[in-house]
Design a protein around this nucleic acid. Structure first.
Length: 295
DNA sequence: ACTGTACCCTGTAGGC
DNA sequence: TGCCTACAGGGTACAG
């Protein structure tokens, strides 16, 4: 579900209700999501104060006063909802203040914050998970150790893409989906970035490398396209498909900007391209692209 | 070492 | 209406 722009939007929605606040009560309504919740999950969070929130790839990291970090991943269908709560006794004062359409049956974890909000984790498919990792172990933890560069950071360059492509023989789609290369891209934004760059998802990654070993113009275009697509998506609060919502219940807007994703059979929007959007399966996932302008 | 497949789980859309 | 299949934003354990 959530790719980088959606996780970034969730982060921004949670910051105002979590930063500087204590966990008063933590109520796991189910002990296992994708993995079991950490031992004594509630006990280790209750009383701790949130110092700050960060995002790495598609992970949310909530840093605590205790030196631990609550690491959360939303999987395919995870979402956070914010309710106005009473705090100490955990009774809901106003119920859902926003009509989000969420099914309460899938509210798996409730964080009651000292500021008077309840942060509810809802996840029908339960592919999401939560972990507690020591701050000092974060960088070397198996989840983060092998992650590639942040696509919106300074490390994503045409040189980096070309160098990463040297050791590989896959196509561009699989290459960009690989979190060890670029961390945070998913199916939607890879499809959109490749369309923006005018590159076919079937093309070999070797097209990024010059014979001298340096980056090609295609590599430059790809970097610019990734940045552009992600930035535009974050600006409108990510994409809302099916059940994804912001913590405040609002929908994202980027689904209205899709050029190829979910548009199989429709006309390419690029002018003067007259191609139609195709859907193919690559590595078991749908790829949408225009056979006309993506070469 | 790399690449593709099956799988975790639930909900929804579309065909009949 | 119901039943069936295919498919969904992710990541991992395997087999080849």
């Amino acid at each position: 579900m959530p790719e980088l722009p959606e996780v970034e939007t969730v982060l921004r929605g949670l910051e105002p209700v979590m930063i500087g606040q204590r966990f008063l009560t933590v109520k796991p309504r189910r002990m296992t999501l994708r993995f079991p919740l950490p031992d004594d999950f509630a006990g280790r969070l209750e009383g701790a104060t949130v110092s700050h929130l960060t995002r790495r790839a598609k992970y949310l990291q909530v840093s605590l006063s205790t030196g631990w970090v609550l690491v959360m991943h939303l999987g395919m269908s995870g979402r956070f909802l914010v309710r106005i709560g009473t705090g100490e006794c955990g009774h809901t004062l106003g119920g859902y203040i926003y009509d989000t359409g969420a099914n309460e049956k899938h509210d798996h974890v409730v964080f009651v914050m000292s500021g008077g909000h309840q942060v509810v984790y809802n996840d029908p498919r339960r592919f999401g998970f939560m972990l507690l990792i020591k701050d000092s172990d974060l960088a070397t933890h198996a989840l983060f150790r092998n992650l590639g560069v942040e696509p919106l950071g300074n490390c994503l360059t045409a040189d980096y893409l070309a160098a990463s492509a040297l050791r590989r023989r896959s196509n561009l789609k699989s290459f960009l989906m690989d979190q060890r290369i670029v961390a945070g891209l998913g199916n939607i934004y890879v499809c959109e970035a490749l369309h923006q760059a005018g590159l076919s998802p079937n093309r070999s990654v070797s097209c990024l490398i010059r014979s001298s070993g340096g980056p090609t113009r295609r590599a430059e275009q790809l970097v610019a396209a990734i940045r552009h697509v992600l930035t535009a998506a974050i600006d409108v609060g990510g994409s809302t498909l099916r059940d994804y919502r912001h913590p405040d219940g609002e929908s994202g807007g980027f689904q209205d900007c899709f050029q190829v994703y979910n548009r199989e059979g429709q006309a390419c929007v690029r002018i003067p391209c007259r191609g139609r959007v195709k859907r193919v399966i690559q590595s078991g996932r749908s790829t949408f692209y225009c056979g006309g302008c993506q070469r």
